[in-house]
Design a protein around this nucleic acid. Structure first.
Length: 589
RNA sequence: GGUCGCGUAGCUCAGGGGAUAGAGCAACUGCCUUCUAAGCAGUCGGUCGCACGUUCGAUUCGUGCCGCGAUCACCA
């Protein structure tokens, strides 16, 4: 229990004695004291007045006197308007550091499965997917750090009409081009043909409109689209030639994805392939038909009516018997549960699919699946460009590989200009540039509330100063540098009898003290931005301390020893925070 | 049109019933013979979209309106 909770409970317990009334715990508002006032912990007394039947100042004074008397961590109090400010003894903060107290995380039994990344094999990974990957990885890290058995799954969307589109375009216009012959990453090559398909498709629509068809008719009747549908049917019927083509092109894409994932530093415990799960979904649709959850239309297509739940009718199987997106998701859901028996199944997917996941959850609930209530769509905002949305089909995307290269190049330029790493060998240099470049990129994507959309302007490169990853990394490297120097000198003893804290020391300790609180909050709210923001605040506070208090040149030996402990604690906490969300930290920069 | 999300400093974002609304960027000023200046300190910058309501107290909660976005496909 932390000091805020302790005081809150203490007040609750003493309340009947002091005022003759019981009080609910949530009426007792405890905050950190604002910096401009004297004190560490603040109790807001306004909500208590009805129960105390006394004026704010009087109420605050009674509680303040009681707490100073009974809680030996509290040194004194002051009352300003309706606020009771409690000053904690320096010993409380000093002990927190020297006794290296930290609230051990209790391990939980509820298993968490996080599905993220889930790429389509018809196009390369772009900045929007990077946000997904970085968020998913960070979220899993946060659950793990809070003691949950957590697993990461990647559902590869490797079949369907969109895959057939790139296959068809390659077959028609590719002239046998391969990643080797074109010297392109496999995912890029396949993506090129996805764009190629769209170009021809649009041209055909235009031509049909010229012949007097409506836009809607034209979109449905374009020959190349009909061909793609025919190819999908062949694929589902196991046509050898098509399946062979599909295998070949998917293998190209996976080779490309592996490189991107490795550079991004994300990983997965389990891969699922929709080519293996879509049939399962079809079986479940049959089952649902029998149960009366679904119904069949005259043309043979299968639907669910969700109008009583405030949604629309939704197609779950096409008239030609092929699966749609949701059919596959229904099937995969069952498979995941059989593998993990998770209590929570989290899908990291953009907010453009809010409706889809509402429908998915409802369908699984109606089918009576035991895991349905534990399904949660982790919905995050899109990454938009100043020109609008990124669209792979139209080629208006910021490519993930290019972006990482750009970030690393920016880190290199900046680092070399500062000239601090001349003694690094080439390998060490490359590793550092990557650490910094990716740190900047990931921090940029994580610092924003996941729900909100991000505006990314490719013309303005991501900053390396201020509220950024490299700022925090730099602070870590600084603590390591001090530690190395400290080890070279003769080391002070650890014994501290009494110690009066410098304001900058106290401020830093308070931030360090909040680490477990922030970690728990970030998990409860599923918000990696909290962790990243905390790491920044910690770095910022440390830098202030560093500027005001000399560590290695401290006057007294116990001062030096104590400050070294602050240095180490800060470094470790930064490193841990960043590791949780998937950002590396350099020993020197 | 229905549903969902978002409107906070010039820009990018925090805060989420409680004290004088915070950071970073941009602009300007100081601070390296002293532990890493990718830093620190400071100046400038706000009717928290608008209105009403609930409350001792609203930027925060509720309702309505305005603006932006997403979604409501035999696309994924």
């Amino acid at each position: 229990m932390n000091i805020f909770e302790t005081i809150q409970q203490q007040v609750q317990q003493a309340f009947p004695i002091l005022f003759g009334n019981e009080i609910e715990l949530n009426k007792i508002t405890i905050n950190e004291t604002l910096k401009e006032f004297e004190g560490d912990v603040t109790l807001v007394v306004f909500p208590l007045l009805k129960l105390t039947q006394k004026k704010p100042e009087e109420t605050a004074t009674i509680i303040g006197e009681y707490l100073v008397k009974t809680n030996n961590n509290i040194a004194s109090f002051n009352v300003i308007k309706g606020f009771l400010n409690l000053v904690l003894k320096d010993d409380f903060w000093v002990d927190f550091i020297t006794k290296n107290q930290s609230n051990a995380i209790t391990s939980k039994s509820a298993t968490i499965l996080i599905e993220y990344s889930s790429p389509n094999t018809n196009k390369p990974i772009h900045l929007g997917h990077v946000r997904n990957n970085v968020l998913g990885y960070a979220l899993a890290g946060i659950f793990k750090a809070n003691g949950y058995p957590t697993f990461k799954a990647n559902l590869i969307n490797d079949r369907g009409i969109h895959i057939c589109k790139s296959m068809l375009a390659w077959q028609k216009f590719g002239n046998g081009e391969t990643p080797e012959s074109s010297n392109m990453k496999g995912d890029k090559l396949v993506g090129k043909y996805y764009v190629e398909f769209d170009k021809h498709y649009k041209a055909e629509i235009e031509a049909l409109i010229q012949t007097g068809k409506t836009k809607e008719e034209a979109e449905k009747q374009a020959p190349i689209l009909l061909e793609a549908h025919a190819m999908l049917l062949k694929w589902e019927n196991g046509n050898a030639e098509i399946v062979e083509l599909w295998r070949k092109m998917n293998a190209w894409v996976y080779a490309g994805f592996d490189i991107t994932y490795k550079n991004l530093g994300v990983d997965f415990d389990k891969y699922y392939y929709e080519s293996n799960t879509y049939l399962l979904g079809k079986d479940m649709v049959e089952d649902g038909l029998k149960k009366g959850v679904f119904y069949k239309k005259e043309n043979g297509s299968v639907w669910i009516d969700l109008s009583s739940d405030g949604l629309d009718e939704k197609l779950v199987l096409r008239a030609d018997g092929t699966s749609v997106y949701i059919t596959q998701d229904i099937g995969t859901a069952d498979l995941k549960y059989n593998d993990f028996h998770m209590s929570r199944s989290i899908y990291v997917v953009g907010n453009e699919q809010d409706y889809h996941f509402k429908v998915l959850k409802l369908i699984l609930q109606k089918l009576g699946r035991p895991y349905a209530d534990g399904i949660q769509h982790y919905s995050y905002g899109m990454v938009d460009l100043p020109s609008g949305r990124m669209k792979s089909r139209e080629g208006t995307v910021v490519d993930a590989d290019d972006l990482m290269d750009d970030m690393i190049a920016a880190a290199k330029e900046q680092t070399e200009a500062l000239g601090k790493i001349e003694d690094f060998n080439e390998e060490e240099k490359q590793a550092l540039f990557k650490t910094i470049g990716l740190g900047a990129l990931k921090f940029f994507l994580l610092r924003v509330d996941p729900k909100k959309r991000i505006l990314f302007d490719p013309k303005e490169s991501i900053d390396l100063h201020g509220y950024t990853g490299p700022f925090v990394q730099y602070t870590y490297a600084r603590t390591r540098s001090i530690w190395r120097k400290y080890q070279e000198t003769q080391q002070a003893t650890n014994a501290i009898a009494t110690y009066t804290l410098h304001p900058a020391e106290k401020e830093l300790i308070k931030v360090l003290y909040n680490y477990p609180i922030v970690l728990a909050e970030s998990c409860k709210e599923m918000n990696p931005a909290k962790v990243v923001d905390y790491a920044y605040e910690l770095a910022k506070t440390f830098n202030k301390f560093y500027n005001e208090c000399s560590i290695l040149a401290a006057e007294k030996t116990e001062e030096k020893a104590f400050r070294m402990q602050l240095n180490q604690r800060t470094g470790n906490t930064i490193k841990t925070c960043f590791a949780i969300v998937g950002i590396e930290v350099p020993e020197r920069m």
